[in-house]
Design a protein around this nucleic acid. Sequence first.
DNA 1: TTCCGATGGCCAC
DNA 2: TGGCCCTCGGAAC
Length: 281
Amino acid sequence: MPEGNIIHRLARVHRRWLVGRRFTADSPQGRFAAEAPHLSGRVLEDVRAHGKHLFHHFEGGVRLHVHLGLFGTIRHFRAQATPPSPACRLRLASPHATLQLSGPQTCELLTPDAEAALRARLGEDPLHADASRERAFAALRQVRAPIATALLDQSRISGVGNILRAEALFLARLSPHLPASDLRAPDFERLWTALRQLLEDAARDGRIVPPHAPPTALTLPGRRREDRFCVYDREDLPCPHCATPVARVPLAGRSLFFCPRCQAPRRRAARARPAPGRARP
DNA sequence: TTCCGATGGCCAC
DNA sequence: TGGCCCTCGGAAC
């Protein structure tokens, strides 16, 4: 269930916990059986995240690239691991830790050059300390499609998924239908700030909880998932800011959630046209 | 027990 | 734009 925050959290945990250990690798499911021997016996040297992509650097220049897609999960075991599910694509085991990866969209070995080429195709990652907001702004402004569509384009900004898109546009009070090419600098600043805030909080806490989520978020027993969010998955529930029912519309095959009032399209500035039949002074 | 939808992304048309 | 792949939790029966 990954957006960029989850991947960065995984990278941070793996760096702290797994780097320096030597692993054996196998593929209970069999679909990584040909590659697993190339990892076995190698020491993990580093773990990096870029957007939704995770890179494990093993000694000898062997890179494991994982993209969890919509369904992928990584299970961690500090000591005794439970038997892997039949769908477990890759199991990495050391005496102190075991990882079980299942359902990834991508699980492959890369050379350092191939990893660099892949990362070069990705947009700025707001979670990278050296991310360039100027490049991100310029990349978004090249898109004529709605900003909601542009935000999911990983070659523009990397790591934003459907939840972050909805919550960040809401926090920035931007209409999801605004053409990205019409984005103004102050709009982008609010959007970038919202993205960074949501991603950083979620990477630390392990889940996305917007700062202005309804007061029921995470507190009431039996709470529903949608109570965690301001607009995502809250169709017809009141906007936490103005109580207008949250709208849900399909956009490019995904559900888009927004408040029709707080995120109303901005009105075009009225053109200065001289009144008919009246001379200018 | 069965079915459905989901925080992605690729491909064909 | 729609179909498809990957897996699994929870809703529906």
